[in-house]
Design a protein around this nucleic acid. Sequence first.
DNA 1: GAGTTTGAAACT
DNA 2: CAGTTTCAAACTC
Length: 779
Amino acid sequence: MDVVSPELNSLLPDEIMDTEAIIMDDDPPAESPAASGQSQPSDDSPVPMEMDVPAVPEIVSLCSDAPPTQLTQAGTTSTPTGSTLCSTTSATQLLLTSSTVSSSSLTLRPATASTLTSTTPKTTSSLSRVSLTSGGLQKLSAHHQIILNKVASSPGADTTRSQGTTTTTPGGQQFMVTAIGKSGQPIVLQLPHTGSKSTSVQGLGEAKANPQHFKVVTVSSASQVSTLQAQQLKTVQIAKKTQVSSAGPIKFVFTKAVNNKGLTAQTSVSNVITGRVLSTSSPVTPPRTITLSETLGSSSKIAISPLKSPSKLTVVSVASQVPNSPQKSVSLPLNMAHLGHQILLQQSTATSPAKTMKPVQTVTVGGVGATQFKTIFPLSTPSNVQQIQVPGSRFHYVRLVTATTGSSTGHAGSPITNSSMTAKPMVVNTTQVRMSVPIVPAQTMKQVVPKPLTSSGQVLTTQTQQRLIMPATSLPQIQPNLTNLPPGTVLAPAPGSGNMGYAVLPAQYVTQLQQSAYVTLASSSGFSTPTGIQTQARLPLNGLSTSGAAFRPRKPCNCTKSQCLKLYCDCFANGEFCQNCNCTNCFNNLEHETDRAKAIKACLDRNPEAFKPKIGKGKEGESDRRHSKGCNCKRSGCLKNYCECYEAKIMCSSTCKCVGCKNFEESPERKTLMHLADAAEVRVQQQTAAKTKLSSQISDLLTRTTPAITSGGGRMPYTFVTKEVAEVTCECLLEQAEQAELNQQPQATAERMILEEFGRCLMRIISSAGKTDCPSINC
DNA sequence: GAGTTTGAAACT
DNA sequence: CAGTTTCAAACTC
């Protein structure tokens, strides 16, 4: 049977289909042609993903009774104590990619078909503009396609509730229910199953376990349904082999513990959605519970965690349940971006780059192959990126808003109704997703550690000073490095990397792109238009976006031998392209994206922290800012800019290995230097002020004397007051004085006579200035 | 502006 | 991991 109806297919990105294909390894060819075109190698070797051990005790709890579950995300295996990974007949792979800030809870409870119960997943809160809130759970039967919609809360809509509807098709057929809706208006989408093509359909009693596919698709809905601007799809795909021995309903509980720290209004610690019990085809299957716990805490990172970065991607591979496990309860911490989004831009349609794209978040569970994790937020139109200026924040934000056109997607305008729910039919793509991406001013990274911004729930930043441009090599290749991506990193087509490449652009570059009102998204499917950005993006001046130049200056580099592909180059190290630099043989640009990607990868291979900010927060009780590695100065005494600590205006710490360090709090040399520096700064300021004032005065003077200059045929006024003129004038004045004296005039009268004569003299001078070069004055 | 110094990055 | 080399910025003249 068709796993996905044509309508839904149009909604699903290629990656989903690809994942599907991977999951159904033993299944007939994937029904989606797009899947075949995917370049995502499913058998990639485990990708080293940066993972932080979740603070939550239990992490993964998906067990399968099948053969080894391939956990492609190696990091995910580092589950905390208590987590269990079990292999089942079919590896269940859970790939949870979330860039949402929101807290979300999902509950999946497969139950026996007969006992299908309707549950209303409750989303207690959604913390972010793009929230994972709610999901209606749906389906389950033996071979089961589940489409779960999550409702993304629009900004301000912190609490979103959607009701999912569980519909069971007769005979345990594939079942899809998608709840789409905005806050308070859950929309359930039910996809008709064609019933025959499903590769996952297998006899329940087969010795070989049947993979169950639970596809959860979340379509976020904007608060404004009428204006379809964006869509967000979340797909959870769970491939699970049905255990013959297993009896009873299988309960999936997706629990997302939300760490609202740093977020706005939401303060709930955890949001748990009570999942509905979905019946499986096997009535005898004992109830099983798989709980996926999603923790947004800072400590629970699984992937893409650039140093408390607002952007995180979570990839989790989870195996299916262990057979005969009466009750398995597992918590899977999902590292959702607690403050922001990792954004990968991708063409939604391989063949039509200009086609409107939908932001998609993919959550995949199941599959034998390597985990294909993707968080894709395709941008389609030039207006996708909106610059956001946050008062008081030094960050640069980009709001990604996908504009959806009615004709862009096949599902557009196709109302999807819920057969069993009261949800209103709603156009799927009346969704709006807004994502705020903080852009870190690279120049200030060394100087100041930005404080977390907790303004509105819409825009959140961390103190992360991530800076990186990721390579344009194949996505799997760079996946391990995605953990170091700076906030707002965007995948874009790599002009020089062929059609398979991604060019991960620094967020600031996105801003640059938006200046030119053009963003081209690459697709891993190989149909990208490699020259999109390159040819159309108007790059602003070096490191200066046209709008952010004022607060984001950066010095041009002067690299000569490094091709600007080494960390020697500040541009490269800051994750920026060289623009208006003085470098020679520069490869730090889109034209050499392939080389650049390799260089980035090499850097990250050498040091995974290479692109992370060196100046970060110190330990408890220590200074807020400290050098992560510490300096290694020998001769400078750490009192020159050679020293990175000094350059960053921070004290050397215990991590430093410097010799003869004088860069400590009580250092007299340092104090003297600081005083001198302060004094010098004051002098500079004074001089600047004086120059400004003088310049202003001169300008004013020139303005006022302009008539005199012009009247004199270009001669300055003083040139008319020659010595002779002065003498004559004086004689005239003396003559008046004598006259007054002779006439015995009072002193006041004498003074008045003299002044009047002086006035006449001046008038004569002025009048004669315009007539002759040598004015004559006669009393 | 040329040359020197310096320390991080890269390399072995 | 330590020693060496390379590199570009900082600094000096």
